[in-house]
Design a protein around this nucleic acid. Structure first.
Length: 508
RNA sequence: GAGCCGUUAGCUCAGCCGGUAGAGCAUCUGACUUUUAAUCAGAGGGUCGGCAGUUCGAACCUGCCACGGCUCACCA
């Protein structure tokens, strides 16, 4: 391919010594009639399969078996002496050592191996053997050059440590840090296990609902705003899946769930990324206690991917997901930790007095329920260790949850807490359209009073409820945080392949 | 949004009181027919994140900027 000489000079200026050498080797391959960016290749085995199948045999047994295989992958380590060489080949399943001799493969093929760099893709055919050191190895009879790496890989021993680079160039992290590679494999398996549980054990239907919303509801959060040209309207990226899924319950689908990306235009930290993956499920005729059972089922199914006995260690703290989760009313939990009793009916002034006594700050528009919630968040949340369903949230902070039949100050809602963090939020869904309109109106009043995350009225959703929605139990789980818990990841960025980053300028 | 910390070779990291930049891996040359962070001998490789300032002299001190990390705040 012809290249502008000016551009080529510029490129060369930006290259370091190692890139120059690799470009030269690429040209050399072409001169030898080898395509440095080759085509299809048919490996007959993966590294992991070979280990599983043959590692149990002795050196002599393997010699007798005389098994020939073809493997392919990226060369990630290379060592050896003049006329023999060893290399580690990384394929999607793991590593395999190869052993190559000049007197076996011949001058030309050995030269290809000698001149190839760490990072290059190569294919090898050979016999499965064990070395004198007992290492399972492919003794090479044929080499195929597959693809050139023009940039050097990170340090083979330390891997890639620079966090920024790990997030920006995840492919390098995946190549050089096996624990990261495995974590993303586990993420996929966890999501698959959840799907399997909901599909096959709970008889749910998986659905897809719009990401672009005319009004962003179903949660309290600031949305991302975008614009549709043809319709010339403002649209929002969804902040929750809730309102569409409930419309499907109205439509008679009975049990639906969606695992999908939602977007919240808020701060970023170890637990928050602007886009994240949420599971929401809705089941007709469930109440929130049924949803607790469903949630335990989901967590156990997911945990099975990483543990046999349900025990998981997160950042040094062990928890047991096989034990039945604790269940406690929010007011009882507050009473237990602080001694403050919110069971008696009280006026806002009495609640404010309690807040003042305990140095709990409150906003002017807060009602008693907001203060109760604040007590919980301030004093109780961080003390929870074992998986615990905290239920009975105040009605003021739960605009989509059904009122408790015996005490209308509270809702039939729960959140699941583990090690001080929230993992699930669920309730018996509000299916009374008149109550729903009043809740939305209270949210609008809150917004006018200064809460810019309060929701607006979704008239279309209320209309759907007016056609009748069966009693329904709904659930939301933050998938990223669940994956963090199960894979012992300290930051949400460690479980997102490509976390949101500020773009860098001046890229080479 | 605030505070603290970081940014030095392709990667991982040193660099003392301000005196013109170091190691290991990687790369290059040579030796070596069972190595596994291979070994041995030699060599090359730097806009010390960027821009200003202080100074005879700045990787180091000061200011501003960029990006990142941690903590806090915010966050159904």
């Amino acid at each position: 391919m012809a290249q502008d000489p000016k551009q080529k000079r510029k490129q060369e200026r930006q290259m370091n010594d190692q890139m120059r050498v690799r470009h030269e080797k690429m040209d050399e391959l072409r001169e030898e009639g080898i395509d440095p960016f080759g085509h299809e290749f048919k490996p007959t085995a993966l590294a992991k399969d070979l280990t599983e199948e043959y590692d149990k045999y002795s050196k002599e047994e393997l010699e007798e078996k005389d098994v020939t295989v073809t493997i392919a992958g990226r060369m990630v380590a290379k060592r050896g002496s003049g006329k023999v060489g060893f290399a580690d080949i990384l394929d999607r399943s793991g590593r395999m050592q190869i052993y190559i001799r000049k007197d076996v493969v011949g001058e030309e093929k050995y030269h290809i191996f000698k001149r190839s760099d760490i990072g290059d893709f190569l294919g090898f055919t050979g016999e499965v053997i064990k070395t004198d050191m007992g290492q399972l190895t492919v003794r090479v009879t044929d080499v195929t050059f597959l693809s050139k790496a023009l940039r050097p890989l990170p340090d083979k021993f330390h891997g890639l440590q620079n966090k920024e680079q790990k997030y920006r160039q995840r492919y390098l992290d995946l190549i050089s840090n096996r624990e990261s590679f495995d974590r993303f494999q586990n993420r996929a398996k966890i999501i698959s296990a959840i799907r399997n549980f909901l599909d096959n054990e709970m008889d749910f239907t998986e659905v897809e609902t719009p990401v672009l919303h005319a009004s962003a509801g179903g949660a309290s959060a600031r949305p991302f705003i975008t614009h549709h040209n043809a319709l010339d309207i403002q649209l929002y990226l969804r902040i929750a899946l809730e309102l569409h899924l409930k419309r499907l319950i109205v439509g008679g689908m009975g049990r639906v769930y969606e695992i999908g990306r939602v977007f919240r235009n808020e701060g970023m930290d170890k637990e928050h990324n602007p886009e994240f993956t949420e599971l929401e499920s809705y089941a007709a005729y469930f109440d929130f206690k049924d949803v607790m059972d469903e949630t335990e089922g989901i967590f156990r199914a997911a945990a099975k991917v990483v543990t046999d006995d349900g025990k998981v260690t997160y950042q040094g703290n062990e928890i047991d997901l096989d034990k039945p989760f604790k269940r406690v009313h929010m007011v009882d939990a507050i009473k237990e930790v602080t001694g403050v009793d919110f069971w008696p009916e009280m006026t806002i002034d009495e609640a404010r007095k309690l807040a003042d006594e305990h140095h709990v700050k409150y906003e002017s528009y807060w009602k008693v329920g907001h203060i109760i919630n604040e007590f919980f968040e301030e004093f109780v949340e961080s003390t929870i260790v074992d998986p615990t369903f905290v239920y009975g949230h105040p009605i003021e902070i739960s605009p989509l949850a059904k009122k408790n039949a015996d005490d209308p100050r509270f809702t039939d809602r729960f959140e699941l807490y583990i090690l001080g963090n929230e993992y699930a939020n669920a309730f018996s869904e509000l299916n009374d359209p008149i109550d729903q309109r009043q809740r939305f109106e209270a949210q609008v009043a809150e917004r006018e009073a200064g809460n810019d995350e309060a929701q607006g009225i979704d008239e279309d959703f209320i209309k759907a409820l007016e056609y009748g929605m069966p009693p329904t139990g709904g659930l939301g789980i933050g998938i990223d945080r669940l994956v963090m818990l199960l894979t012992d990841a300290p930051s949400i960025r460690d479980v997102l392949l490509f976390p949101t980053m500020r773009p860098e300028e001046d890229q080479d």
